[in-house]
């Protein structure tokens, strides 16, 4: 039996290399500690190694290296004892499975329901809401929340940052099989040092705007040009927007759009990797 306070999942030095015609490093190096009673999210783009990590924790995939303890036990000790205490919903691979008459939402809810069937202490959900309509996603979030409220622990993967932000107590952002950030959603967003993003758009802006001047503006923490869109991370938008407007005005171009929003996990990911979280997702 595990003592209270013991970790639900304790993974150290995890590495997984698929050897085939071409060697694929699915997980390069990963430590993962999930406390009992929390909803922990693995957030990352496709191919980041989320499924591999989760399936190693589920005992479906042998790690190349690393120590894995689930509810205090290793898979080599007593697999059945672990299976009796966990619930698993696998990543949906084929939409045309046997229960193909069900809609995506029904299918996912059924998968999660079967995962919950054995009254598990620890629940693994691999992309539980991918491809679902907003309503089905929300009802699944409710299931996760009530499971947690009853004392359950959840490890889930997602590539939706809004889902990660509202559902997870703690998050690990992974990319190329490595941790690139870890913390509560609030901590991760706060790590950017500013709470808002201002976007200004004008046709032809890319060639004309003086990015150095934008960066030098008081209150701008970070700025970049995405096409003809100027994106600035700022502390207090009401103070900075007038200055930014003046800079754009100076180019003589008519302003096509102005938007401000709170910084999101997406911005955290872009900040850390220089890429967007969902880049290439459509392709796979």
């Amino acid at each position: 039996m595990t003592r209270t306070g013991e970790l639900a999942i304790d993974v150290c030095g995890l590495r997984k290399v698929y050897r085939g015609r071409r060697e694929v490093v699915a997980v390069a190096e990963l430590d993962l500690q999930v406390e009992r009673g929390e909803v922990f999210g693995l957030l990352g783009p496709n191919g980041a190694g989320k499924t591999t990590t989760v399936e190693i924790c589920e005992g479906l995939v042998e790690p190349t290296a690393g120590d894995v303890r689930i509810l205090g036990r290793r898979w080599s000790d007593d697999p059945r004892a672990i299976r009796q205490r966990i619930g698993v919903s696998l990543q949906e691979t084929r939409p045309d499975a046997r229960y193909g008459q069900l809609s995506g939402g029904q299918r996912q809810r059924l998968a999660v329901a079967t995962a919950l069937a054995g009254r598990p202490e620890l629940l693994f959900l691999d992309e539980p809401t991918t491809g679902l309509d907003p309503q089905s996603r929300r009802s699944l979030w409710e299931v996760v929340r009530s499971f947690r409220a009853a004392g359950g622990t959840v490890l889930l993967t997602t590539h939706y940052m809004d889902e990660a932000a509202v559902l997870c107590d703690r998050l690990m952002i992974v990319d190329h099989g490595r941790q690139i950030a870890l913390g509560t959603p609030r901590e991760l967003i706060a790590s950017l040092g500013a709470g808002h993003v201002v976007e200004l758009e004008a046709a032809g802006l890319a060639g004309r705007v003086d990015l150095g001047r934008v960066a030098g503006t008081e209150g701008v923490v970070e700025c970049e040009l995405v096409g003809d869109r100027l994106v600035a991370t700022v502390e207090r938008p009401h103070r900075v927007v007038p200055d930014l407007l003046r800079i754009v005005e100076a180019t003589g171009l008519p302003l096509d759009g102005l938007a401000t929003r709170h910084t999101s996990l997406e911005d955290v990911f872009v900040h850390l990797t220089g890429r967007h979280l969902r880049d290439g997702q459509e392709a796979s």
């Binding site: 698993v88 499975a97 046997r98």
Partner: peptide, 14 residues
């Protein structure tokens, strides 16, 4: 092929 065996694998069924 339909991943059904994996779904059984993750349960306590031996």
């Amino acid at each position: 092929v339909k991943n059904l065996l994996r779904r059984i694998w993750v349960t306590p069924v031996g």
